[in-house]
Design a protein around this nucleic acid. Sequence first.
RNA 1: GGGCGAGUGGCGAAAUGGUAGACGCACCGCACUCAAAAUGCGGCGGGGAAACCCGUGAGAGUUCGAAUCUCUCCUCGCCCACCA
Length: 857
Amino acid sequence: MEERYNPQAIEPKWQNTWLETGADRTSDESDRPKFFALSMFPYPSGNLHMGHVRNYSITDVIARFKRMNGFRVLHPMGWDAFGLPAENAAIDRGISPAVWTKQNIAQMRTQLQQLGLSYDWDREVTTCSPDYYRWTQWLFLQFLDSGLAYQKESAVNWDPIDQTVLANEQVDAEGKSWRSGAVVEKRMLRQWFLKITDYAEQLLQDLDKLPGWPDKVRAMQANWIGKSTGARVVFQTEAGAEIPVFTTRPDTLWGATFMVLSPEHPLVPDLVTDTTKDKVEAYKTAAAAKSEIDRTDDSREKTGVFSGSYAINPVNDRKIPIWVADYVLMGYGTGAIMAVPAHDQRDFDFATAFGLDIIPVVFPPDADPETAETLTEAYADNAAGVLRNSGPLDGLTVPDAKQRVIEHLEEKQIGTAQVNYRLRDWLISRQRYWGCPIPVILCPDCGIVPVPDDQLPVELPADVEFTGRGASPLAQLDSWVHVDCPSCGTAARRETDTMDTFIDSSWYFLRYSDATNDGKVFEPNKVNDWLPVDQYVGGIEHAILHLLYSRFFTKVVRDRGLLNFDEPFKRLLTQGMVQSLTYKDPKTNEYIPADKIEVLEKPVSPSTGNKLEVFFEKMSKSKYNGVDPQSVLQHYGADTARMFILFKAPPEKDLEWDDADVEGQFRFLNRVWRLVEGFVSQGARPEVYESGDLSKAEKDLRRATHIAIKEVTEDIEEGYQFNTAIAELMKLNNALNDAKLLDSPVYAEGLQTLVQLLAPFAPHIAEELWAELGHTESVHTSTWPTANANALVADSVTIVIQVNGKRRGEFEAPSDVSREQQEELAKATDAAQKYLAEGTLRKAIVVPKKLVNFVIK
RNA sequence: GGGCGAGUGGCGAAAUGGUAGACGCACCGCACUCAAAAUGCGGCGGGGAAACCCGUGAGAGUUCGAAUCUCUCCUCGCCCACCA
């Protein structure tokens, strides 16, 4: 055996062996329980970053652990391969998106293999490959058939110089095109949507079926869906036009003193008068010109104009002015609100800014309810008090009034109870090339005609030019666009929009169950066998969209009868970011790469000489703080990188990259290596302990071994506590190192156990050491050790003595000590006697085998 | 404004009602070495000679006993946000 631990030699060796023997292929033995371990698949940018390494290391530990525990494990990898960067590469460098993507995938696959990740590469999926996107298209047609895909006019970002549609990411913070620098405009286009709103209630309700998800993610999804219950109330203008509003506070209806319509509201042109027309028009134009950035600006100064018309409050016939203001959004509710300034802060601010009526106040404060001056802010609290100024609601509490008012509205036929969701339908059209083509044909006679199944996939043409200007490359390619209608044969056009890449990733986890099927999207028995995913691991940044879309897809596909479960991901782990030391010039706001700084202890900018700020931040190119996984692998090997990342912080917390700690992990693996080396090189190989009498030292070591088994198992199984699991490995290592018992079978047992427990974390070194210990089969197919209950019991236990809750001493007691004995033994100690003499013993609290607390007065 | 979470040594962190700081990093001392590195051994919250005292963001409470449970407040992070 080599004296030195040399990862550069053993890692490639074992990686090749595993590949050749198919060690990581999915087992089909159906008599074993299944486990589906999944990491969120990456976009193939060409380079693995530390976030990937962290994500995949976590999942790999779980997959390997489950395999050793007798599960058949599905642990696949794939590529979320459509998307903008490939198209940019085509424009900038003339490489075709397909070729560029393919190269990147090849490069990243090699990097992944160097990490020793136990993927079944036979099930690799690539979303940009026709044998995958064929089924993406097929699924789209299922949506279309269910009436869940439809077209609607919607705004896009339009670059007036390049005459092209821009993705949101191509519009910079100032609202300008990344390429031409032109101010981006909004244009209306007919685009495809998926009706996710039909599933809003289910998506909300079923969050309760996901106890294995972080509360945070469930809360974020619930928030995003944004259910509110209230009422729809119809107001009439003096001219007789109806304006429905949605309110969550119908109980405050008697307090409405004006109405506000969104500038985009279709009724606005009908409300203006000769005197207000120009002002309202000007306001509408100004609002339309406002970019997203201005709209989300924090300044929050209320703006608006009077429309010129009045409405009648249907419950009290009060005549109230109708205003137009952009704090009311066309996209939520009905695009119109009733304003109750006394009980809504936004309405209060608006009323204050424009001198509108604030009263009546319809529930406390009590002071002088009729004077607006007594109100300095809206009174929204509804905890106490009863209503007034509210006709039939007078005297009711707010909760009662909320009930009663709905009945009242329905009796009078002016409103109904209504539920509203913040969630909007999903705009999936992209006017881009490198995405999945939407498989429909637009026929002048038949309208929207789905591409027949036997003509799928609609493949992306290869002979395309990329200029970054004009219409999407697909729309510019006449030979591709012009096609006969499959239904009537007339000359028709293909849909040239491609799908949002979130579609590709909304079902890939289903495909892994039957990845190579070329006749079906997947066999029902396979998808129902492997799914749902038992453990999904990925970044918190996907907490809303990707996970919500995937849940939506799963439910729709279920309702098409293609599978039989409600939720795709049983347990979810969202790992924290990987951060590293970042240097920033506080005066110029420039980030400085560490290798440009001469003295790191007192970092100053090399160009300005300013003292730099030093802090941890997420690794990113623009901050020059990235640590390249490749260089870490070359230096320390994959096992050290994995160990460091898993040990440094619990998986869901942010992790601070620290070279010294990486070094520390390398040292730990070296210690394990030397332990085995020392054992093997002395020649004697006693058999692993089975039974027989043991010395005190042997008993202690054996106990340490079995405690490690127990703790490591619980840490992995019960809460992804890989950091404490590794700490337990270190303890066992220390115990073996301290025990001078090389000839004992207990030592052999301990050493062997250490290597097995290490295997999920550091698979290469564990495999090598396992072989050195004389095994011919892989450590990864060995059976995970079980803690022996007898071995865990110590001969004696340490009992802590407390007096009035303060620690005053301790003593050793036999481990089978009874409650009564424990109390008596404790009383007899010097420590206890000293305090017992000072007062009267009131009570003794005995925690068996742990502690005795004397309460003394 | 709403939601979620966090605050413990010089640092990353353990401990989820029972010995606060496991494990590791950094640091200090010793051994080995001509020397350094590597490695091994030992120390390492603060105060104190010691007995002891203090100590988990602040304050109160519950309890025999609180980092842990409850309440109030402070600070930080993330997500959502004129959502009616």
